[in-house]
Amino acid sequence: MIGSSIFIFIFAMWILIIIGGGIAVLILAPISITDYGEFNLIISSGIKAVISIAMVISWIFILSKVKNWIFRTTLKI
């Protein structure tokens, strides 16, 4: 079937989104800073932002690996 490997790639992307969501909820959500007064929100948001960016970079890296694995034959174009 034409593009069948692309269906697998879309499915892999979906699984990665769900796993990423789980990590975000389990790791990001509990982060709470309490000792810096009015800066609590900014500091905790900063930490969450750094973790989020790291997660996005990892996600792109994993997706690239998945892409190379799925399309290893067709990408030799």
């Binding site: 769900i18 789980g22 909820v25 990001l28 959500a29 948001s45 969450k48």
Partner: peptide
């Protein structure tokens, strides 16, 4: 997020 709930950001 599905299955895991919400994250407040």
């Amino acid at each position: 997020f599905p299955l895991f709930g919400e994250v407040k950001i």
